[in-house]
């Protein structure tokens, strides 16, 4: 939601408790345990949150989004059924999750630190980690990391595409226009296939 208007002041809560209700901590633990058991991974989880109807997404609290995403994924994968969820009783045993292969290659970055790059102007219907406010913009590579799995395919279980990730710096003026303070910048972590070498 980078750049959106209308959300008002930042709601700072002094002396905020770690959890606002005990169920929040339970949901946190359930997400961690089921994810580490290999029942789903983080890209799928994020995409499941993004698949909530937009109005519901905005209304829901953080941990309500988590609960919704865990329910969605476990239902879709047949770990639990609607009938079981309604009754609160297990009918069938949970299937065994597939093991993730250890296929991470070494880092071979295409772009150099200091190089100018342009982000693709692309609007995929599914999951992506290229923020909307930074599409079709020119920036400079600050550092290279990874490789990490490309979320765009991994979230949909459509491939395990390892890519370098670059911290790319964009001037505030490039993103927000000339009224932005000179010298201010936003750095965004971007996968290699989000980027093109910028024309000189």
């Amino acid at each position: 939601m980078g750049g959106m208007h209308g959300f008002g002041r930042v709601p700072i809560e002094p002396d905020e408790p770690l959890f606002h209700a005990p169920w929040e901590g339970r949901v946190l633990a359930i997400q961690g345990r089921t994810r580490r058991a290999g029942l789903f991974h983080l890209d799928e989880f994020r995409h499941a949150i993004e698949r909530m109807p937009p109005a519901r997404y905005l209304e829901a609290s953080y941990y309500e989004r988590w609960l919704t995403a865990v329910e969605t994924l476990l239902l879709e994968k047949g770990v639990i059924s609607r009938e079981e969820l309604a009754g609160g009783r297990a009918i069938t045993p949970a299937p065994k999750p597939p093991a993730a292969p250890d296929d991470r290659p070494p880092l071979r970055p295409l772009f150099r630190v200091g190089e100018a790059v342009t982000t693709r102007n692309t609007h995929p219907p599914g999951h992506t980690r290229l923020p909307r406010y930074a599409r079709g913009r020119r920036g400079l590579v600050r550092s290279a990391h990874g490789p990490f799995l490309l979320p765009d395919t991994n979230a949909h279980l459509a491939g395990r595409d390892w890519e370098p990730v670059y911290a790319v710096e964009f001037s505030a003026a490039e993103l927000w226009g000339d009224a932005a303070p000179a010298g201010d910048a936003v750095c965004i972590d971007l996968w290699e296939s989000y980027l093109r070498r910028a024309d000189a």
């Binding site: 980690r129 750095c187 972590d189």
Partner: peptide
């Protein structure tokens, strides 16, 4: 003072 905002969009 320049302001640098880091939008942590990857697993870093």
């Amino acid at each position: 003072v320049r302001v640098n905002v880091w939008d942590s969009s990857s697993d870093l």
